[in-house]
Structure formats: C-alpha cells, structure tokens
Design a protein around this nucleic acid. Sequence first.
DNA 1: AATGAATGAGGGTTCATTCAT
DNA 2: GATGAATGAACCCTCATTCAT
Lengths: 194, 194, 194, 194
Amino acid sequence: MKLSNKKTLLKKEQILSAAIDIVKKRGFSGATMEEIAAELLMTKGSLYYYFKNKSDLMYQCHNFVLSQATEELEEILAKGGPVKEVLRKMIEKHIHYAIEEKETFNLIMEPKRYFNKEQLELVLKLRNYYEGLFDEIIQRGLKSGDFHAEDPAIARMIILGAMNWIQQWYRVDGRLSKEEIVRIYYDYIIKILE
Amino acid sequence: MKLSNKKTLLKKEQILSAAIDIVKKRGFSGATMEEIAAELLMTKGSLYYYFKNKSDLMYQCHNFVLSQATEELEEILAKGGPVKEVLRKMIEKHIHYAIEEKETFNLIMEPKRYFNKEQLELVLKLRNYYEGLFDEIIQRGLKSGDFHAEDPAIARMIILGAMNWIQQWYRVDGRLSKEEIVRIYYDYIIKILE
Amino acid sequence: MKLSNKKTLLKKEQILSAAIDIVKKRGFSGATMEEIAAELLMTKGSLYYYFKNKSDLMYQCHNFVLSQATEELEEILAKGGPVKEVLRKMIEKHIHYAIEEKETFNLIMEPKRYFNKEQLELVLKLRNYYEGLFDEIIQRGLKSGDFHAEDPAIARMIILGAMNWIQQWYRVDGRLSKEEIVRIYYDYIIKILE
Amino acid sequence: MKLSNKKTLLKKEQILSAAIDIVKKRGFSGATMEEIAAELLMTKGSLYYYFKNKSDLMYQCHNFVLSQATEELEEILAKGGPVKEVLRKMIEKHIHYAIEEKETFNLIMEPKRYFNKEQLELVLKLRNYYEGLFDEIIQRGLKSGDFHAEDPAIARMIILGAMNWIQQWYRVDGRLSKEEIVRIYYDYIIKILE
DNA sequence: AATGAATGAGGGTTCATTCAT
DNA sequence: GATGAATGAACCCTCATTCAT
C-alpha cells in the first residue's frame, strides 16, 4: 500500500470526514464502521485498507478536528494586535466551535479510553499544543502588563473549561444570543486575568 | 422483590457501589453487567433481580453520586457562615467529586446518550437543582455585598464549567495536589465574583 | 407434601386458574412462572411446591380446560333427545366456546411440543375422549338412520376443524351474528352427515 | 449486501430452507438462530447478514411457504379443467402443505403472536389472497351448476378449517395414508358443495 | 407453606475484524 | 483497491429452577 499515493490520501480524508460526521452524531463508541462506510457508499471491509482498525480511525478523527481548530487559532495569533483584542477573537472562535460544531467539538472532550499508548501520547501532545495557544496569548498579556495571573496554566484551564461547558446549556432560542454570550464571557475572563 | 426490605436495600447499595467503581474505570458504555457482577462475586443474571436493566443501573449510579453530592452541598449551605468560606467549601466538595468520582459524577457527558426519556428528565431536574445550589451562594454573596456580578447565572455556569473540566486533565501524580487546585480555583473564582 | 390436603388442592386450582389466564394471553411458551405467580400475589418459587415444573403446570392447565369443556358436552349428550337436535346443541356449545372463550379454547389446539411422553399420552387420551363425544352423537345418528358416513372418524374431524377455524375469522361486528353462524354451520354439517 | 446478487439470493433461500426445516420441528418460538445456523454449518452471527432479526427470518419462512403454496394453487386454477377435478387438486395440494410443512405453513397459529405490525399486515393480505383462490373455484362451480351453496364464503371457511385441522391429528404412521385422507376429504367437501 | 435470592444455561443481537476473490 | 461474506467474541437480557431459611 503506497500511502504516499495522492489518490489514497484523498480517500483517507474523505473517510475521515465521513467518520467525523458519524462521531458527531453517535459519539466514539456509538459510531460503527458499518455506518461510516455506508456514508461513503463503501463497505466495511474497505475501510481497513486505509486504517488499521477502528481505534486508528477514531484517533485520526480526533487529530483532524483538533488540527483544524488549532490552525484557526494560530492564524488569529499570527495576525497579532492588542492582546485583549486577540484574546477576544480566540474566545469568539472557540465559543463558536463549541456552539455551532457542538458534537464535532466534543471530540476534544471525549475520554482517552479509546486510544492506545502511542496514540494517547500524540493526542496529548496535540491537545497541549492547542491549549498552549491560549497560554501564548496569556503570556503576551503578562508581558505587556495587561494580565496578571498567579498560575497561568490553571487560569487557562479555567477559561477553557468554562467555554466548553457552554454547549451543555446553550439553546438557539435561549435568553442570550451567541454574541452576548461571547461578550459576557470575555468580560468575566478578563476579570480572571487582570 | 420487597423494596421495603432492608437487606434488599443494602444489597442494592452494594451493587450500586460496585457498579460505580466499574463506571469510574470504564465509563457508562464501557461498563458491563458481567464485570459488575464479578466484582460482587455474583452472576450477571442476579443483577436483574435488583435492577431492571443496564440503563436502569447506570442511571441509578449517576443519580446516587449526584444526590450524594447534592446532600453534601446542602449541608454546607445549611451550616452557613461567611459567604466566601461557604463557597470555598462548596468548591472543595465539587472538585472532590469531579476528581474522585470521575465518570459517575461526570456532568460533562451528555446524559441523553445513555439514559431514556424518563431517566433523562429526572437527571436534568437533579442537575438543575444541584447547579441551583451554586446560585444560592452567589445570591447570598450579592446580598451581603461580598460579590458583584453582571449576570449571575452566567457566572455560575463559568464556575461550574471550569470545575467540571478538571476531570479532563487532572492526574494523581500531576504537578498540583488536589488541595492546591482547590485553593487556586477558589482564588480565581473569587476574582470572577468580586 | 400432602397433596390430599384440601387446602392444597384448593390452592392448586387457584394456580391453575391463574395460569390459564396467562396462557390465554401469552400462549404456552410466552407464559412465565413469574407472571403466573404475580397474578396470585405469590412468588415464583412457591409454584414449585404445587407443581413439579412448568411443563407439569402447563399440562394440568390443558387438562383442566379440556375437562371443563368435556363435562358440558357430556351433559348435553346425557340429556338426550332427537339426534339432530342434540348435535345442534353440541355445535352451538362448541362454537360458543370457540368464539367467546377464544383463547382458553385455543389451549386445546396448542401443539404438544411442551409435554413429555407420559403427559402426552394422557393429553391424547383426554382429547380422544372429548372428540369421542362427537363420535357418540354421530353413531347415534348412524344407528337411527339420520346420518350416513363413509368414515365417521374423519367426518368428526372435519366438523371439529371447521368449527375451530371460526375463531380465525369471527368478528363481533362482522356480517353474521353468532346465531346465524351456528345455523349455517349446522346446515352444512348436516349435509356432511346425511 | 447486494440484493440483486444471485449468489446472495441463493444463500438466502438456503437459509430459509434450513430455517423452515427447524420451524417445522420446533415451531416459531422454539426455533433458535443457533440451531438454524448450525444446520447450515454457519455461525449465528452470519444469519444477520441476510436477515434483520429472528422475527424477519420467521416471517419470511411463513411467507415463503405460503407464497409457494399460493403459486401452486394458481397454476392449478390456471390450467383449468372440470371444476370438481380442479378442486380435488387444490384440496390435495393444501393438505399436502398442511401435513408436510406443518408449522411453517400453519394457518391456525395466530400470526400476531410472532410477527410485528407490518409483517402482520402482509401475512394477512397473503392469507386472504390464498383463501380467495378457494372462493374462485367455488364460484366456477356455482356458475357451471356443479356446486350449490347458501353462503359460499362460509362454505369456503368450513372447508379450509377442516383441512387446516388435519395437522393437529395427522400421524405418518396413522390409520390413513395421505392419499386416503385426500380422497375422503374430497368426498365430504363435495357433499358440502353439492 | 412460602419466599427471597441466586443461578446458569441459553437466546437474540451487534460489530470489529478477517480474508479469499 | 474493493467487497462480499463470514466469524466469533462480547453483551444484554430472560427465565425455569433451586434452596436455605
């Protein structure tokens, strides 16, 4: 199997995309190879040509989503600007994902029970990197004097946890619009960091 | 089965306790009736004498832990004292559950994936009540002038989200002990509420 | 266990009655010891004091119903009268059972898969006896010259089969009333026997 | 699974055939997926590649046999010939099915006990159609003057009921051979219709 | 006489995985 | 590259049956 083959890589991505759709709906253990294959008009067996096993496929799904989110945050950070404004954009982006991509974003919250040791290691590395982007902006703020934090790593976790929790209670027809939520969250987060 | 029978109730609790142990380790869908029974030196079938089905048992696990946590928070609230001190105790308790009871207490997991309609309704009711206890202490603080909050409901959600997220990253052998985490979280939460 | 004990016999009959009710609803294999016991506000285990096992209980159910029907036919036969009139009454009675006691009567039609060899033997004997009551009236008719039949045993089976089949299509609000059905069936049966 | 695939269809028929054999012996609820698979030197799980579940398989067994019988009756009717001769062939065929296919063909059993709503609807439709074929030949006889019947619909039911009942008492080693039974039944049925 | 409790053998069903073609 | 087909382990659940109390 030439994995370097362009066609193969394309197909892998298609499978990933379909798998992510299914995982969004059913969760990791709820997703079946059967349903994923069906979405692609393929058969179960074919998936095993591209992925070693379900665990491998699930792992790469997780990777894919996390990487995508990572890239978007990197862009925001790269663009630069006033620290608080950059943070605001990152918050907006993260909350957007948490609300609009709800289930996809849940990927990030799924337990690591499904991955083996090496996969787990890589997953943690990626997670750390993603979370590190928030550390990055916090550090900028600390240097610029905009922020103050006793334990910046914990501050970052508090912020992430708070934002991820939104998907538990957010309703499209709720009291607050997405924009208002972002604004209020931003205000509270600033309180944490000042 | 006589539900009034003390022996029966005791056994039910023993089963619940064993089930909770397994769920902690394996999660709701990873836990098997077989393993739970084995833990008690019973056979699978016997469990069905006490619980209607797996879903029922799982629900009662979640319920049990959540109810217990609820009671403990109620006690803390009932005892009264300086608002911030009461809040600190509540934070301590919640973080304890999030870390030690992990999956069973897991408020992040989407209950609709594991529970049926009636169970779901009860779980959500209980969750709401539990979360309301945090509203209660926040209100006390607002009245006493200890706290200030633009949108107290959102503040409460930020606080809960932040704490629930701990179970995603906490490691027994991590940099920080549980006590230190509690202290740092308390400090940040006070910043949010002041 | 003194089976001769009057109390015991009474209890046995109560159990039988409840069991028949359940079998009516669920069929032989669908009936469970649990449900039968519940109907009597007893527990499963207690049933085994009165009946060796489920097969035994089912067998006695079958016996009970069949015996009851047998008695009623015997009465009609004993009363005597013009052959055709007696036959008409028997037909009326049998059809009444088939329609009104539908499920109970179905007991008689249930397969013998559930019974062991000795039970089977006795069941067949009882069945033969019941069916023999129709042979009896046919014989009377043959002797009196009212009837003629090449193979009376087969004639009797045709008649019984035809009547038992009614419960497959009879509807309370159907085209024909019970009385009309009895009349038409009687006419056709006479055609068979003349 | 490609339903158009001939091999698949063939296999489905093989499974059906084996299932029919088992159902003949054990009845619908007595038949197990295990035993059916074993008969084919397959494993339980494989059956689910071809049939959705046991209920589906059982339904198709009944359907298959009933459809086959229907086709054969249709052929006989299509071929035409003297009314009484056609009826004789139909009786022969029906009795053959009632005896040889026993449980699978079983028209006495209440389909609602084994089939779900949609299956039930289809079964009843097919049964009605099958029974209608007997109406057809009766009508021909009425037109040709061979038969006379006060209520032809009831006559048909009497005839069918009589024949279906045979499977309750027929024994391979009984007094009468299948051929003799057919002849005697034919004679009696003619008496009903003349 | 009765029961609470436990058992264990099965049955239906699902699904990741394999493999010849 | 892909698939049809089969597998087998695992899981949930039911239920007749047993037995100490």
